[in-house]
């Protein structure tokens, strides 16, 4: 049946990413730059802004049917906050990748990966790496 009605709007749907800061950390230069990088790569970025809780992030990811959650962390709290985020996602049965970016020392990258963080982006990660790693993580999920 090729009447046009079926195939009308079907196209490669953009990846949808919920992008946010968890906790009190207000450093938002990086997350804003990443938001634009992802938009310019054709993704839809649902920007939650500052001071979110794990619950509010999960609620947004559910309602937005996000393909991934991106967290930006600059306060050395990543070893506490990233696992808390993963736990909240697991409790809500959200089977989507968690991408963490910010000031993450090399030594912590492995621990975060072991805990279940899909991608860790360090300071100064180039745009292509940001985009490609989000795409890869979404494709693998």
């Amino acid at each position: 049946m090729d009447d046009g009605l079926s195939s009308g709007t079907e196209a490669a749907a953009p990846i949808r990413v919920v992008l946010t800061k968890l906790g009190l950390d207000g450093h938002d230069r990086g997350i804003k730059v990443v938001a634009r990088i992802l938009r310019d790569a054709g993704m839809e970025v649902v920007y939650l802004g500052l001071r979110q809780t794990t619950d509010s992030i999960v609620a947004a990811a559910v309602q937005e049917d996000a393909d991934a959650i991106g967290l930006s962390m600059h306060n050395a709290g990543h070893m506490t906050l990233a696992p808390a985020m993963l736990k909240a996602m697991a409790e809500a049965e959200l089977e989507i990748p968690l991408v963490v970016g910010g000031i993450i020392p090399e030594d912590d990258v492995q621990s975060l990966s072991d805990a279940g963080v899909a991608v860790v982006l360090g300071p100064g990660a180039p745009s292509e790496e940001v985009v490609n790693s989000v795409r890869a993580a979404v494709a693998a999920a």
Binding site: G23, L24, T53, N75, A76, G77, M79, T80, L81, A84
Partner: peptide, 11 residues
């Protein structure tokens, strides 16, 4: 505070 989790005395 629950908001302080992971950030007490860090920065």
């Amino acid at each position: 505070s629950p908001w302080a989790l992971g950030e007490v005395g860090r920065a």
